[in-house]
Design a protein around this nucleic acid. Structure first.
Lengths: 148, 148
DNA sequence: GATTTTTAATTGCATTTTGCAAGTATTTGT
DNA sequence: ACAAATACTTGCAAAATGCAATTAAAAATC
């Protein structure tokens, strides 16, 4: 069995680098974490703060501040839930949506480039493998207990 | 083509979580980044500072301070190179070596647990796929230009 | 052989990120 | 009605980050 730790570690670092390039959209600068937050809000239906913090495994207090920063940048809106007034629903603003989409397009572009170094068959195998790995991690007790 | 960005993103986050658990060895607490540094020093032969900073894509000034912190914890030693006095060779101390090995064992344990949710065939495919992905990223211009 | 340029590493800021402890407000359970 | 749990915020204080500037040594140029 090969050294999986190393493999995953360098893969992470490299993907992180690709990811980092993606965070400047005409004048609007956001951090890597913030791009992940935008992505998750975009993907879900009016999620709560806790929900996103859990998914991204960010401490809730840090998350609270990150959201404040995104609100100041007018990319995110917080709306108090009517059913449960403790909860705030997160929404992307129009600009936020544009930024999220823009980053996503960029990232897919980058990923396409990365995958262009593979054969069609390899490409499929790799994607399927990532799914399998991801699912296995989700099942693991080592991480991901709160993370779906 | 599936959403690769999402797949990689959540895989990264999950691996990062596993990775984070690994950094406390009987009283000695180190950060995730520091565990990566120990790993890379262990792996290479008396590397220079620049070398490791490049591999891990850490800014050299940040790296310099991280090394200082690891030296203070007596996990790492810096020895001025004789051939080129600008360069400092990085060495693990005896304790440093123990810590690095301990983290590595722990991580492999965790990884084994994660991979236990797969069939033998899947396991092989996943590992091979990660290799392919890694190589493709290395070839990419998007990241990894200084990173091998 | 002297001088310029490049390279390896450190230090000084100033900013950002982080997370624990403690707090408020609301809801749920008893 | 009251206790416990939940969602979120704020106050620190520590850690991490990165740019600009510096030192020291090596390599390149003249």
């Amino acid at each position: 069995m090969e050294n999986i730790r190393e493999l995953l570690q360098t893969t992470m670092i490299r993907f992180g680098l690709v990811d980092k390039n993606c965070c400047s959209i005409n004048g609007i600068d956001i951090s890597l974490v913030q791009s992940h937050i935008l992505y998750e809000i975009d993907k879900r239906h009016h999620p709560s703060m806790q929900e996103i913090a859990d998914v991204l495994a960010i401490d809730i207090t840090t998350f609270s501040r990150q959201i404040q920063s995104l609100i100041k940048k007018e990319l995110v809106e917080k709306r108090q839930s009517i059913q449960d007034k403790r909860v705030y629903e997160l929404h992307l603003t129009t600009i936020g949506k544009v930024v999220a989409t823009s980053i996503n397009t960029q990232m897919n572009e980058y990923m396409k480039e990365v995958f262009s170094h593979m054969s069609e068959e390899e490409k499929e195998t790799v994607i399927r493998s990532l799914s399998i790995l991801n699912d296995s991690m989700a099942k693991s007790t080592m991480c991901c207990n709160p993370i779906r």
